[in-house]
Amino acid sequence: HAATELTPEQAAALKPYDRIVITGRFNAIGDAVSAVSRRADEEGAASFYVVDTSEFGNSGNWRVVADVYKA
Rank of each mutant, 00 (worst) to 15 (best):
H1Y: 08
A2N: 13
A3L: 08
A3W: 04
A3Y: 03
A3K: 03
T4P: 03
E5A: 10
E5G: 07
E5P: 08
E5N: 07
L6N: 03
L6Y: 02
P8H: 12
P8I: 10
E9P: 05
Q10C: 13
Q10W: 06
Q10R: 07
Q10G: 05
Q10P: 01
Q10I: 06
A11F: 02
A11E: 01
A11V: 04
A11L: 03
A12L: 10
A12V: 08
A12P: 03
A13T: 13
A13F: 12
L14Q: 12
L14G: 06
L14P: 01
L14D: 05
L14F: 08
L14W: 07
K15D: 07
K15S: 10
P16G: 02
Y17Q: 01
D18T: 11
V21S: 06
V21F: 07
T23N: 07
T23P: 00
R25L: 08
R25I: 11
R25A: 10
F26R: 00
N27M: 12
A28C: 13
A28M: 08
A28W: 10
I29P: 10
D31F: 06
A32H: 02
A32R: 04
S34L: 14
S34C: 14
A35I: 07
A35N: 03
V36P: 05
S37L: 08
S37G: 15
R38P: 00
R38T: 07
A40W: 02
A40V: 06
A40I: 06
E43D: 12
G44Y: 04
A45G: 05
A45K: 01
A45M: 10
A46G: 12
S47H: 15
S47Q: 08
S47T: 06
F48P: 02
Y49N: 03
Y49M: 06
V50R: 01
V51K: 02
V51F: 04
D52K: 07
D52M: 13
T53I: 15
S54H: 14
E55G: 06
F56V: 13
G57Y: 06
G57K: 07
G57S: 09
G57Q: 08
N58D: 14
S59Q: 10
N61T: 12
W62V: 08
W62D: 01
R63I: 14
V64A: 01
V64N: 01
A66N: 00
A66D: 01
D67T: 05
D67P: 01
D67K: 03
D67F: 13
D67A: 05
Y69R: 00
K70D: 09
A71V: 11
